[in-house]
Design a protein around this nucleic acid. Structure first.
Lengths: 340, 340
DNA sequence: AAACTATACAAAAACGTTTTCGTAACCAAG
DNA sequence: CTTGGTTACGAAAACGTTTTTGTATAGTTT
């Protein structure tokens, strides 16, 4: 087992100084053709690779972007990561991903770990628990130490930094407007509890759409789900006792479960009930019937986030604090769960 | 914007030496109670955090595990990552994840980047392109430099290291045996092209099961799919012209698409056609009907992989080269797409 | 009083780089 | 023969730690 080779090894072996080796490898013209070739040949032979850690320490930058997401098991986040990776790699940055598993503690631990030297900047979607706690000290402190942070999707108003968000309200409104346009009048809303930012915003969109059609809100058609992982029965029994001809769900899972429930009632989709979900993932695409859904352009979000972050990193003129919030448009993907 | 604070800053501020500060913070009894408290108070006040990069350089270890997976957008890999994270975090290791996007080049780049100082060891599932190329120099070289590597799921025989695999053949065989047991006799196999390791192994399992039942292989019932991302039509037309009463698919997507095709033919599932897929992901769980499937226990794989790697890392007695291959059992999850 | 022993701290080395500065050797010009 | 300029290299500092070694002061033995 060969050990990792360093400049020092090369220097000793060739009986020259470390600085000469370093310069030779970088093609510095200060070093004679002769020595340069000799060093390069030796380095190649022994497969020399500069130690990144040492470089990071020296340069005080790591060329690494840290991404922290609430859950890895999520199509939308996976897409965002793709976008981030594309832009990052193009610009010579490495991407490292950590998941907070929606836990406040893990988010803090990951954040502090990565903030103390391992990365140059953060792209972050805030964990559910953190949003509940409303404790953002780890984030704000890191920002105040000069490390750029870009928030996406699950953001918080109290944090001053660049943000990439989806216009959730608008997307939801468009979706519900479409349900209304194609004839639905009693539209069920399957949403999350209020402290979940995105659930809340999408709920707003639902309300606005109804208002735009001058329909009054029937609170009994709204179900706020707490336990996302275990809500199949809840949705089923809720839908059993209602009269409705449309469903808007704030995520894919709710939509798919609703579809199942409706089919159990022997109602036809989309003729008796039209359904629209949120997030264009695998489920919507492969459900039966395929689901009309609001797409969030996750990859584009990732790209934008990475662009913003890298721009900040490479133009670190201090003092000039200016934060941007970019809103990514949603798009309604028409499939078989709605008419027209 | 406060700068990041270092030992040097503290030392200068309190007019003592750097070593005293370091020792004081670590509670070294060589330092007087007085000084110790003063330093700790100051450090706390200014939120001092040791620089990880410097620590890594000094200790020549990073307490970081690098995970490279072929695609992030994949339920199975996401589950494995969960398992890895759980074990890693419990042992004080950080996990960083990179995706190769199934590209050989990206795999090599990620690998070399992380191998040169950023991580202590690797957990890796080999990219499709790499398996095709059969070029594993980046991996074998890293191993020979003393960095532990654990391969999982998509492994290669030519690489000597610890491996965690699923008994794909056995899992597939069990599945097909189940189809046979519940009455199917003409069973379609939807698989991938041969160089994909897992597809190949699962195909073997299919063949073995038929042999166990003394059935002869009907090659016309086997479809080898090249373009996984774009195979809906292919599956549809293949199934249109065949006689069959069972389908075994080597992944979730194929199974779901087959389900759709069968329903289009107005055959009933599971009565006319029984279907089993591979991988227990979202699709199988939420498809209509829900799909019987072979579960790979992804989290368990991740846990095992992390355990193996950490064990190697913490018992670096050189010389002793011993590699283990752990086989994780599969489990047939019974759902609505099969009888009984 | 000489010789130890604690105590409490400082200095320096090391991890692997890069880069600035210094300098020996050589040659040309005055 | 002195000065100046190249050429080709080496020394050293720096990044932020930890740790080993060194040392001044004070107190304790004999």
């Amino acid at each position: 087992m060969r050990q990792k080779i360093t400049l020092k090894h090369i220097a000793k072996e060739l009986d020259i100084s470390i600085s000469t080796v370093s310069k030779a490898l970088k093609g510095n013209k200060e070093i004679s053709e002769d020595t340069r070739l000799k060093v390069k040949a030796f380095a190649k032979l022994y497969n020399y690779k500069p130690n990144n850690i040492a470089l990071s320490l020296k340069n005080r930058k790591t060329k690494t972007i840290a991404v922290i997401i609430p859950e890895i098991l999520h199509h939308f986040f996976a897409k965002v990561i793709r976008g981030i990776e594309r832009v990052a790699n193009k610009n010579g940055y490495q991407v490292i991903i950590c998941s907070s598993n929606n836990s406040f503690d893990r988010e803090v631990i990951n954040f502090e770990m990565l903030a103390s030297g391992s990365a140059d900047g953060f792209i972050l979607s805030i964990a559910k628990e953190t949003l509940q706690n409303q404790d953002y000290h780890h984030i704000t402190e890191t920002i105040s130490q000069g490390m750029p942070v870009v928030l996406f999707d699950r953001v918080a108003d109290g944090i001053f930094c660049d943000k990439i968000i989806v216009d959730d309200t608008r997307g939801a409104q468009d979706a519900v407007m479409h349900l209304l346009a194609q004839g639905s009048r009693r539209i069920v809303l399957l949403t999350t509890v209020d402290y979940i930012n995105v659930g809340n915003l999408r709920t707003q969109g639902y309300l606005r759409a109804l208002k735009a059609y001058d329909l009054e809100i029937d609170e009994t058609l709204i179900l706020k789900i707490e336990d996302v992982d275990n809500c199949e029965g809840e949705i089923l029994s809720f839908l059993e006792e209602k009269e409705f001809d449309g469903i808007f769900a704030v995520n894919e899972l709710f939509a798919v479960l609703a579809t199942k429930a409706v089919r159990l009632q022997n109602k036809s989709i989309p003729d008796d009930v039209a359904i629209i979900g949120f997030s264009d993932g695998l489920l919507s695409k492969h459900a039966s019937p395929t689901l009309t859904t609001v797409s969030q352009h996750g990859e584009q979000m990732g790209e934008k986030a990475a662009e913003l972050l890298i721009h900040k990193l490479e133009n670190q003129q201090q003092g000039l604090e200016e934060y941007r919030t970019i809103i990514i448009d949603t798009e309604l993907i028409h499939r078989a769960s709605t008419r027209e």
